[in-house]
Design a protein around this nucleic acid. Structure first.
Lengths: 337, 337
DNA sequence: CGGTAAAATTGGAGCGCTACAAAATCTGGC
DNA sequence: GCCAGATTTTGTAGCGCTCCAATTTTACCG
């Protein structure tokens, strides 16, 4: 890598070949399968490459080999941090096979989820991970293996579904609160598919125990504000409530705010448990009880499914649930009194 | 978009041309400059495109036109949410010009920042935004316009620097605390370039006011744990401290934890102010005073600089600071007593 | 209607790389 | 020292698209 003086066009494989005194094919070979090239030429080619500061053109490689060794990940919003663990899981399982992950976020509005997907497909990704609310039509006209991660409603035909078992997670939260002796329990829900399953799992277990459950926010969003509003509703209409399960950690934060506003101390007066085991919940200050959806494991599984379907496209789409894990921290305690 | 029955290869521009009864060139023209094509053919081509479910190959387009209309954004870790606002700013300024943003994260370890950059360069991005601790050598051998956002140490030669004015932000925090009457003030710092500037701005203003400042964590990281440790150190060695300024919101969260552990109530006994105006600080529960580094504005500026340098590559790299803004919320108050 | 300029359309070369068959070179055994 | 077989290297033909010069069609005017 010398100082590449002039603003000349970037070096091509031909430049490298000429400089190393070999054919372009040989350079290509060095790039993809160095062991088939003699020691001498390999060294010469490598020297020429760094001498010229050559970087292979991804576009040309893709075009010529018609494979990109990359899979696309569609997320809805970078602020939803749960995708970070998913990404880590994906990468850990994918990189041993030489695959890379390309991200596209699909903010609502102009850049719809379909556009994000189209962009990825235009880049010839070999597989697609959809970590956003999927739309039925997003996959029409393509045969790229796809798997939906973390959502459950409207999975497009032909796509696999791999997610944590939200029903089971809801049951875990319920068992935890029941085990602490709570009998007046509220739930802050939301409108998405994941929230619905968490709600059903939670409700079913609570009802089994012959305990009443107050649910709010079923058709609302899942932001901190939504959690705050839902918690306020429950605490104002049922002031005897001693425990709240929120559909995610962010909503749980809203619940904490609602408790604080009413002078309730957590967990002495009110237990609060969230879902996701996000950074928030892990934080030393908040120290929040939660359910870990094991997004890392989901990621690994998604990667393996995709890899299998890339190899053998005739494979049927599957459907798999990952066991979540209860994380008990400092916002839940035995029922007061 | 019919049901594309067979797993045939994806349609090319030739398939579209044949189906529409025109030449491939015409199809290409429709794609990039529809107004130069007669109404009739345009409609025919468009019909064929959706009929076949055709999506142009990005690789081929790139190769043929040698321009990608995309710029690359290198971030260090998806968990550092400050890049989200930067991204929004970038996109808002870039999309009117038809440019897209491609992200690459550079986790420490195997996937070094240089690799992330190389990946982006291999994709022929026309410009590079580095929102991570830059390394001197990352740009050798390339002439792609680059700008560093948000860091200040070791900006590679030839790259512009655009960031919020961390010195000024530090001064704002200092003025705020001094204005509230505090005279025993601590600062939780970190080892990065940004932290150093925040520290210097803060210290200079405090010292001007002839007030003593206790600084901890100068050579540590900037996580919540680091903030906790630094806050513990200050509170234990200087129990009379009434205000803490943290180098970022996450560290401020650690400070809150330290205060809680000592039974200090915030802001009655101890004022805490962070930096970044992250989601955390905005949250209703935490309601944290902070300094907003206006990453959105930084993003817009970065985009415009890049655009200008793409158009005219002879432009000199610039250096610009964006004015931050003080955000007063509920964690700072007048000095007790 | 012929003629001309403008508008619309087309053919073909080439972007940088890989795949694959063909050619060149190297082994070692007799 | 020669030859079969293995190993290494090289030509050639695309991959799917854009660009541009050349060609065809259209519109308009006298």
């Amino acid at each position: 890598m010398t100082l590449n003086p002039s603003r000349t066009r970037r070096p091509t494989i031909y430049d490298v070949a000429k400089s190393a005194g070999v054919s372009p094919s040989l350079v290509s070979l060095v790039l993809q399968n160095p062991s088939k090239v003699s020691e001498k030429r390999r060294a010469a080619v490598r020297a020429a490459i760094s001498e010229l500061g050559y970087r292979p053109s991804r576009a040309a490689t893709t075009l010529a080999s018609s494979q990109t060794k990359s899979i696309g990940l569609v997320i809805d919003d970078f602020r939803n941090l749960w995708f970070v663990d998913l990404l880590r899981g994906l990468e850990s399982a994918l990189s041993p096979h030489g695959y890379q992950v390309t991200l596209a976020d699909s903010r609502p509005g102009e850049n719809r989820i379909t556009e994000a997907t189209d962009g990825l497909l235009a880049m010839h990704v070999e597989g697609l991970v959809i970590a956003a609310e999927p739309s039925e039509s997003m996959l029409t006209g393509t045969w790229v293996p796809a798997v939906v991660a973390g959502w459950r409603d409207g999975v497009p035909a032909g796509a696999s579904l791999i997610t944590n078992d939200d029903d089971e997670g809801g049951r875990m939260a319920a068992d935890h609160l029941l085990g602490l002796g709570h009998t007046r329990i509220g739930h802050l829900s939301g409108s998405g598919g994941a929230a619905a399953h968490r709600r059903e799992g939670f409700r079913s277990r609570i009802v089994e125990a012959a305990v009443e459950v107050r649910i709010a926010g079923e058709s609302q969003g899942t932001s901190e504000e939504d959690g705050y509003a839902a918690a306020c509703w429950i605490l104002d209409h049922h002031p005897d409530t001693t425990a709240l399960f929120a559909a995610n950690d962010t909503m749980a934060l809203g619940a904490l705010a609602a408790a604080k506003a009413r002078g309730l101390s957590v967990p002495a007066d009110l237990s609060v448990i969230g879902y996701d085991n996000s950074q928030l919940a892990k934080s030393r200050y908040l120290d929040m009880s939660t359910v870990d959806n094991r997004s890392d494991l989901v990621g690994v599984d998604v990667a393996n499914t995709l890899l299998a379907r890339i190899q053998d496209p005739t494979l049927e789409p599957e459907r798999k649930l990952i066991e979540p894990a209860l994380i008990v921290r400092g916002t839940t305690a035995r029922v007061p009194g």
